[in-house]
Amino acid sequence: MLSIRNLHARVGDKPILKGINLEINAGEVHAIMGPNGSGKSTLSSVLAGRDDYEVTDGEVIYMGQNLLDLEPEERAWAGVFLSFQYPVEIPGVKNIYLLKAALNAVREHRGLPELKAGEFLKLVREKLKVMQMDEAFLHRNVNEGFSGGEKKRNEILQMQLLEPTLALLDETDSGLDVDALRVVGEGINRMRAPDRSVLLVTHYQRLLDIVKPDFVHVLAHGEIKLSGDHTLAEKLEREGYEGIEAA
């Protein structure tokens, strides 16, 4: 599904990613862990198409096409979804309006008809329930005045609606209390499917207790230093990143 080969990226003159190689097959959940500043968030941003980063070398093949050639919205249409570490506020725009516009934009490009208002509402209510969110959420402005936990739930709610093929979850566990962590984690688990892959960027192991990854990769200084199964995450939790960074 996703093949990252020798990916290099920089911000200004500063190289951040220095040759990332990663293969993600359909149905797999990969966790990217690593210390602050290792390039974890940069990786998910580059994959989603943020133009603050300049790709200087390498390629990313997603479902047979060169992902880096696509605009951010084209990636969304092709089934890529990024859950933001810091979801952005859009004042004056109701959440329900964004959800509907996003869903219909993606549906249009998948050759599906626009959902009628009634159908949409039914669907969104179903997803709200999963995320244990109140319907009042729909009528608040996008992320405006949301608590950290509400913002993250809202991201996963969007993911549930958009049903991406490749979900990039950037530090979705940060800022969550224990209960919210469980809701968000289970929300992610529900999305696991044979035709869907997840790239989970996280600093801590706690989310991985709920969402068991198939693979764990440790990113440091812009390179994947170590890969393993979910037991690697537990090891890191005990021993920290120090040994790996030095490697």
Binding site: A48, R50, E73, R75, A76, L82, F84, A102, L162
Partner: peptide
């Protein structure tokens, strides 16, 4: 803001 909305499938 623009990037956020574009990742949700909206054109620029």
């Amino acid at each position: 803001q623009l990037f956020y909305l574009r990742t949700r499938g909206m054109s620029e």
